[in-house]
Design a protein around this nucleic acid. Sequence first.
DNA 1: ATAATTTACGGTATCGTTACCGGTATTGAT
DNA 2: ATCAATACCGGTAACGATACCGTAAATTAT
Lengths: 339, 339
Amino acid sequence: MKNKKRASTIQDVAKAAGVSVSTVSRVLNGKLDVASETQEHILKVINKLGYTSNLAARSMRSHKKNLIGLVVPDIGFPYSIEIMKGVNRAIAESKFDLLLYTTGDVQKNGTALHEQHYVSLLNNSITDGVLIVASAAAEFITNSPIVAVDPHVINPHYPSVQGMNYQGAQEVMEYLIGLGHRRIGFISGRPEIGSAVRRLKGYRDSLTNAGIEVDEELIKPGDFTQKNGYTNACELLKMENPPTAIFAANDQSAFGVIQAAEDMGIRIPNDLSVVGFDNITEAKYIGLTTIDQFLEEMGYVAMQMLIKLINGEPLEVEVYKMQTKLLLRTSCQELTPVA
Amino acid sequence: MKNKKRASTIQDVAKAAGVSVSTVSRVLNGKLDVASETQEHILKVINKLGYTSNLAARSMRSHKKNLIGLVVPDIGFPYSIEIMKGVNRAIAESKFDLLLYTTGDVQKNGTALHEQHYVSLLNNSITDGVLIVASAAAEFITNSPIVAVDPHVINPHYPSVQGMNYQGAQEVMEYLIGLGHRRIGFISGRPEIGSAVRRLKGYRDSLTNAGIEVDEELIKPGDFTQKNGYTNACELLKMENPPTAIFAANDQSAFGVIQAAEDMGIRIPNDLSVVGFDNITEAKYIGLTTIDQFLEEMGYVAMQMLIKLINGEPLEVEVYKMQTKLLLRTSCQELTPVA
DNA sequence: ATAATTTACGGTATCGTTACCGGTATTGAT
DNA sequence: ATCAATACCGGTAACGATACCGTAAATTAT
């Protein structure tokens, strides 16, 4: 079973068919100056040998590869999954195939440098273009087409699709303040992520605009995970003067908050209002009020932009801003004044 | 902006650093016979030029690439997502990176031939090994390591991780029959998919074993989608003598069933018991009784097997059978005898 | 001091494929 | 019958990187 029978090459095919490699290559690439009998014969041989062309060799020589690279920090994250669904849809409608690249561990490797490395890797080699998700990215983009979803910098020098994080956060805050909440906790995302920073700013500015002083005690550093949401919520809820509402920077953190409240016997929404951000699939079932930023659609639009870029077509907009929408569910309630 | 400045190559680096390409290559690959000053100098130049090595060229010449390919039919499917999570975890613990390949449209392209093509493509070129999910696969596997998750054939000639579909279905049926149900509808998966066939067989055999005649009217051809589950459920529930329980071949179909029942004013579990298969994330929130086949774990184990294979280590088992577990939730109820 | 080894690097063949150039047959026009 | 045009196909040079071999200089052993 350990026979190292190496895969057959175009040379093998040529030899077996009794023609030159050039001719086989022509058949492979659908060139028309090949006699139809020859073509049929070669195809038969290809099939018999189970030959498939070597992607590496082809990419090196030729320049169209019908392959698009997608770089995401972690495919396990609901955030990534939603975007991937949209990407997938756009790919299905196109002639391109998708090559997804991930480092597998966002905590360890997810640095700008690391991701930039992958982008170059794909770009310089086997793909026609790259879609990069939620990343500080690519200073050294040379020639190849690239589009970013939620880039960390707000004005990258390549096209991007961006969620309206600042406005979305403001929408949430206006809603909560409208319900009468004054002490509103905030669980942030990792500070090196652009969208997290913008959501935090939306939180702060909204408070200020409403004439409410920002209490730094109510702002917790987070990392977008449920576990972190849990521990931060515990701290917030154990305060002497605890918040009456918590705005988590993403849905997963919000799930942690809900879990914490449950464990501490705090009722939602009666004793505590909770809002998330992202509207991942699970949010619907939990009844979490959250901001829908249409992640699936973002992936879809971004991929369409990238394909245009690859085809040399002009882009309508360089920065596509995706609308957000506040989805009211059952995790919030008007603040009942203490009797 | 349209300057076609081509990416820098190892040649450019060599020239800029005033050394030969060999030396640069040595630095790139961490060979030790390079003077440390030379090395530092070259690294500096590499950094300045923003050079990254061309994956295609490297793969062609060298043979270790620290890259594993994953071929899934559709990344949008919850089934795929669960497996990918496990794959991701194993990858994170390893030195390998992941390259995911998908055709984007399982309906159109998901044929054995198509998938086989991709496997060869990856295998012959840029990856050290391939993990292939839910596929009729690869007749022409030549040399490279390959592991399959849920292969359509039950005895492939390469290692695999398989869910216990037959036993799982039997487990469900014994449970439903134990609850007193005699007319049990079945919504199948696509017949070309091995696991779907085995689940159907489990359904049939369980009925026979229990001395219940199989009513072909109660068996609906499905395709694993929620929409299909919906329409099939409507048909079943409109029958003159409708089933008192429906066993859907996967959770998504089951969701369709639940939706249909809701729309028809049929209460679950009072009037109808529903069971799914897979235990995807959403099932928990819906309260769907289902078979957990530990998809995440399957992906994890499969990837570990593949890595062993790549490293030339022996495998403990060629076919790893993953246990299933019936998760009782709130979508089933004992059949109350008609008064 | 000389030989033997090690260190550090350069030159070149090679991986599998396609682009390009060119060369035979075959066909058609006059 | 002669020549031009076409159809079909082969040979070879790249693509960018690494493996391998070889060699000058530096180091060590004898």
